[in-house]
Each structure stands twice: as structure tokens, then as C-alpha cells.
Nucleic acid binder design. Sequence first.
DNA 1: ACGATCCTGGATATTACATGTCCAGGAAGA
DNA 2: TCTTCCTGGACATGTAATATCCAGGATCGT
Lengths: 157, 157
Amino acid sequence: MGEGVEWGLHCCLVLAWIGDDEALSTAKLAKWFELPPAYLNKRLQALVRAGVLTSTAGARGGFRLGRPPEKITLMDVVTAIEGPEETFRCSEIRQRGAGAEAPASEFRHACGVSVAMRRAELAWRRELAAQTLADLMAEAPPSAAARARRWHERVNG
Amino acid sequence: MGEGVEWGLHCCLVLAWIGDDEALSTAKLAKWFELPPAYLNKRLQALVRAGVLTSTAGARGGFRLGRPPEKITLMDVVTAIEGPEETFRCSEIRQRGAGAEAPASEFRHACGVSVAMRRAELAWRRELAAQTLADLMAEAPPSAAARARRWHERVNG
DNA sequence: ACGATCCTGGATATTACATGTCCAGGAAGA
DNA sequence: TCTTCCTGGACATGTAATATCCAGGATCGT
């Protein structure tokens, strides 16, 4: 898993804390977390395409949450940044080589290995979908939220 | 996730089907699935180091299951091949940049993002650990198992 | 004893992908 | 109109996955 997911989640958290009255630019977010601005921007764009964030061009523009924190799950962020593909990719090796000398009927049903791996992956996705940005906000120390808001007023207000 | 996991699981399945009276060499397994022998061998070695397989050197040597199929979980195979690291790596970006201007006390407890991602990953691992090689054998069509045994007798017997 | 088979582990190449940078274009506010 | 700021593409870099090769040693069959 790429570190873009970590970046995305933390950025969403900051955006949730400062509210959607104001937008935060890529540059500001990059400074907050000491991340490469241009590359972080690519990830934020992915979140915009997925509807997790919205963006505003021009001066005083930047990014906002695309919907209330209770409606944004970790699954949304992970899918937006990592893509929709499953982490386990079945390449059907059972149909290759000497093992392929079988009646086609045997390959009618799905590969058992693939099914088993998918089962585990579904459990992962289910757990990701069960947790929202709002949950993260609730579990974080209030001081962190307050500090983000103070900083935002200093650099943006 | 690397394709080594798929290779490992299918190889374990074949080894389970032919039983542990005989060993299967890397070359035979590679032919069965049409895989690069030298590279497949590296993955099999990893499974041996993890105790999932055992190896015998010399003529008529090769690989066997390290323990009965009911005692080998998908988690065992995945961990052996992919390594023990978590897929989500928390690099503590909350402690970097402008966001780090906080009392150290705030970083005493674990990062909420990290905790949430770990929760999902645990669900994944739990599901992997709940499924064994024996389960895969039971769900596979009997014809596949029979075919593996016939092939084994032809090339190895 | 000898040759053939076969695992082990290190060194090395190759490739794919994640990471990171840069720039031209357009949109919006001051 | 100037500055800020997003968008998207092109491009460079670094690192990990993939793949190959070889020397060494173990085991079996003859």
C-alpha cells in the first residue's frame, strides 16, 4: 500500500477540522505535513475525481470536503487513491502449463484460491467502509483539532 | 500483492493432493503451472523457511507440505511470501512539518489513522487465518485433485 | 565410487511501478 | 491585470518485484 493513503486520510482529517467555510491549498497542506507539494496535489486530485473532495480554482481557492465527514469512509479514500483493483490478482495459473490439460468444464466455476483470497479482501473492505472520517475526528484528541484550526486562521485567515 | 502468493497457494494445493509420500521438485511444479523455475524456487524456499513446506535435497528430492493441510492457513502462506510487515505503513506524518508544533503529550497515544487502518488489516488477517489448505481442497472439484495425482504418477512415479 | 538429480543462497540483470518534479493552460479573487 | 491556485500531461528518479545464473552441497540410484 502506497503512502498516498496516509497522506489522503490525514489531509481529509485536517479539512474536516477546519470546516468547509474555507478552502486549503495544496501548498498549505504540504507545509502542514512536510510533504512534496506537487506530488501531494496528484493525490488530492484523485480524491476530487472520486468526489471525496471538491476543489476551487483561483486565489483563496483550494480543497474542501466533498460531503460531511460522516459520509466519507476510509474505503472511499483508499479506493480513490489506490484504485479499484483488488490487491490479490488472480492470473488463472491453474489454466496454464501441464495443469491446463483438463476439460474446460472444470474451469467453469471460479478458482478456489481466488475465491478464498477475495473473501479475506471483502472483510478488509467491509471494515474500511465501516469507519468514517467522523469516527476518526471523534477518536482524535480535541487539542489536535484545535491546533489545526488555530494554524489555519494564522496562515489562511 | 505480488503474484508469489498465488503461486505459493496453488503449489501447496498440488502438494496436498499428491500427499507427502513423494516430493515434487521445483522443475515439476514450474512445468505444471508454466512458471519460471528459478524464481518459483525462491518462493518455495520462503515457504520452507516459514515451515509451511519441507524440502529434501538430492535425487528424487523436492518439496512436501510441512504439516497436514488442516494446519496450514492462507495467512501462513501469505506471511511466508509477502513478509510480516503490515500493508499500511504509518510514517507518522502527523509529527512532521507545521503539524509537529504540538506538545509531545499529544503524540503519546497512537495515531488514529494508523489504528483505523490496522483494524481493517486485522479483519483481513483474521479471515486469512480462518481458511486452511484443507478447506481449499474440499471446495475444489475432485476431478482436479485426481488429475494432479495422475500427472504426478506419470512424471514422478 | 560415481553420476545424475535437486535444494540453497548469493550475485546480478531486468522490468514495473511508486515517487517526485516541472511546465503550460485556465479559472477565480484582489 | 496581477497573483493565486487547480488541472493535466510529460518527464525524471528511485526502489521493489520479477527473473536469471551459478557455485556449493546433499541425496539417490547404479
